[in-house]
């Protein structure tokens, strides 16, 4: 779906103890923009996503989604909830509710958080299940699903809430290779709907295909950003070039 919601991240800094993991990150997304974040492991990419909905609380930041603007220094519990309710988050390890079926995982936020009626939420869940191709697994518990199926439900759960921004934290990194394709296909399908999204990924080919803009991060800072063709084919910064050489020398996996 298309939103007309501008998103801005300003001056985001996060420290763990004396270690500064994110250093003054500034990033804006226009409505419908799909942005991929790439970079070496341990460089703060996942922490950046987790700071955006306060799974990790930033030490400093102003995060703006449309008319909602939250300052990390003074953020109240209500503001944090409001921010979370306008973002969807897809976890690396799926993190489905273990005590809920696939359908209940999708309806949980609609019923408990949004206050929808059970029947309205079930109808929405059935739509989502159909679009992620898991109608027949509606009543299965996560423990009975494959990794790929679990991650598709995880994406469905985030989609169902119709947030202004979808955050994907390395959505295929924990998957067995055989399930990566189906999950990437689903994300591609969502990207085609011009959903505003920020995706941290190690899948370079995928980032090139779906992203309007690629952001390269290293050492807690944004080093370089631009259209995929520019970043992948004509990177300006030596650090970007070195990273891409390492990645393409291997099998597309950027670990290391």
């Amino acid at each position: 779906m298309t939103t007309d919601c501008h998103i801005s991240i300003a001056g985001l800094t996060k420290r763990f103890g004396t270690n500064t993991v994110l250093n003054d990150i500034n990033l804006n997304l226009t409505p419908g923009e799909r942005v991929a974040i790439i970079g070496p492991s341990g460089t703060g990419k996942s922490t950046l996503l987790r700071c955006l909905n306060f799974l990790d609380r930033p030490d400093a930041a102003r995060i703006t989604i449309g008319d909602l603007s939250v300052d990390a220094a003074s953020a109240t519990r209500a503001e944090i909830l409001a921010l979370r309710r306008r973002t969807g988050f897809v976890f690396q390890n799926y993190a489905l509710f273990a005590n809920k079926t696939a359908r209940q995982n999708i309806t949980e936020g609609l019923v408990t958080v949004r206050g929808w009626s059970r029947s309205k939420a079930d109808a929405r869940a059935d739509e989502v299940l159909a679009s992620i191709g898991l109608t027949d697994k509606a009543d299965s518990y996560p423990a009975a699903l494959s990794g790929g199926q679990q991650q598709r439900i995880g994406i469905g759960r985030a989609m169902a809430l119709d947030g202004d921004l979808l955050l994907f934290d390395e959505p295929t990194s924990a998957l067995d290779p055989e399930w990566v394709g189906e999950v990437l296909d689903l994300i591609r399908q969502i990207a085609d709907g011009r959903q505003t999204m920020l995706i941290v990924t190690h899948e370079m080919q995928f980032a090139r295909e779906i992203a309007d803009r690629v952001v390269f991060m290293e050492g807690g800072r944004i080093v370089e950003q631009g259209p995929p063709a520019q970043i992948f084919d004509a990177p300006e910064d030596e650090r970007t070039r070195a990273f891409l050489r390492r990645v393409t020398a291997g099998n597309g996996n950027a670990e290391g």
Partner: peptide, 17 residues
């Protein structure tokens, strides 16, 4: 598991929920 708390946080639940 820690991830269960985080998933619940990510969809905007209150602590009581």
């Amino acid at each position: 598991d820690r991830s269960q708390w985080e998933a619940a946080e990510s969809i905007g639940m209150t602590r009581a929920q």
